[in-house]
């Protein structure tokens, strides 16, 4: 019969329409500004800089190695290396970024900077309502605005943060052990210089 297919199709829409009164799973729309879906742990929107401790400037993990600047696909990161050094988490003097800007308008949330960072200094934030009325200053985010404490990192990406902390703690322990061994060796050599001299000969 001509029109049978149309009637079948209409029956399907009718079933969906009536079904929406019965089962909630047919109501799929999320009423966005009032209602929000919680974000997943992997969510990524815009990078932030992790700092340890209270003082954001002192605790910034970034050592201004500029790898992220080079690898960033749209080249939205701008870094200037400092002239002086400050101690990092293992106490080793390191450079720090004198300027660290990210252009919010250019960033495409790809997470490449996070992956290439050898110091776990840059991570992805999950804040997503980032629009601003100021299209010049407001879109260039500087290092103070980017800095977030490690506790915040733990809050938004708990699994990843735990892994990072464990890795950093292991590195620190290793560095401490190495420093201790070096110090012990130094005292030893200081104590018995002729023996080492003989050994080297």
């Amino acid at each position: 019969m001509l029109g049978e297919g149309i009637i079948k199709g209409m029956a399907e829409t009718a079933r969906n329409f009536l079904g929406s009164y019965v089962s909630d799973e047919r109501l799929t729309t999320v009423q966005y500004p009032e209602e929000r879906i919680p974000q997943t742990e992997n969510a990524r929107q815009f990078p932030f800089l992790v700092h340890d401790g209270e003082d954001w400037h002192k605790g910034l993990r970034c050592v201004a190695c500029q790898i992220c600047e080079k690898e960033c696909p749209p080249k939205c990161i701008y870094i200037e290396k400092s002239k002086d050094k400050k101690p990092d988490y293992v106490g080793k003097p390191q450079f720090y970024p004198a300027v660290f800007d990210i252009d919010l308008a250019v960033c495409m949330s790809c997470q490449i900077c996070v992956e290439v960072c050898p110091f776990d200094a840059i991570k992805m934030n999950i804040e997503y309502e980032l629009s601003t009325a100021d299209r010049f200053g407001g879109l260039l985010v500087n290092k103070q605005q980017l800095a977030r404490p490690n506790a915040y990192f733990h809050k938004i990406h708990p699994t990843e943060a735990a892994e990072v902390d464990a890795r950093l703690a292991a590195e620190k322990a290793k560095a401490n052990a190495k420093a201790k061994a070096a110090a012990a060796a130094a005292t030893k050599t200081a104590a018995a210089p002729p023996a080492t001299e003989a050994a080297t000969k």
């Binding site: 997943t40 742990e41 992997n42 969510a43 990524r44 997470q111 490449i112």
Partner: peptide
């Protein structure tokens, strides 16, 4: 896709020699 890769459309998930992260 979002829970796996962090983004809904711009997944950027595969890497040379495998994938970026394991399944959640």
């Amino acid at each position: 896709f979002e829970s796996l890769t962090g983004a809904r459309m711009m997944c950027n998930y595969m890497r040379f020699g495998g994938c970026r992260c394991d399944l959640p």
